[in-house]
Simulated scan of single mutants.
Amino acid sequence: MIARATSGYLGADEILQSSHPAIAALAQELRGQHANDPDFARAAFEWVRDEVAHSFDVQDSRVTLTATEVLDQRVGLCYAKSHLLVALLRNQGIPAGLCYQRLGGPAEGYVVHGLVALHLDGDWHRQDPRGNKPGVDAQFSLGVERLAWPVDETRGELDYQVIYESPAAEVVDALRMADDILRCALPAELPVSSSRCQT
Rank of each mutant, 00 (worst) to 15 (best):
G114S: 12
Q127G: 03
Y79W: 08
Q139P: 11
W124P: 14
T68D: 01
D159R: 06
E108A: 14
A25I: 03
L26K: 12
D37S: 15
G122W: 08
L142Q: 07
A169K: 07
R196I: 09
S193K: 15
V63M: 09
L142H: 03
A44S: 04
R4T: 04
P150K: 07
A80H: 03
C197D: 11
L84D: 14
H83R: 00
H119R: 03
E108G: 08
V151N: 06
L65C: 05
D39Q: 08
A168Q: 05
L186Y: 13
L77R: 03
L190D: 14
W47L: 06
Y164L: 00
E46C: 11
S82K: 00
G76R: 00
R62K: 08
L89G: 03
A3I: 10
P167S: 04
V48K: 02
L120C: 13
A41I: 10
L16G: 07
M1K: 10
A107G: 05
D60H: 01
N36P: 01
G122P: 14
I23T: 14
L120N: 07
S61N: 06
H83A: 04
I15T: 13
A178F: 09
A138K: 12
F45R: 02
S19R: 13
L190P: 13
L30N: 11
D13E: 06
Q17D: 09
D180E: 05
S7R: 15
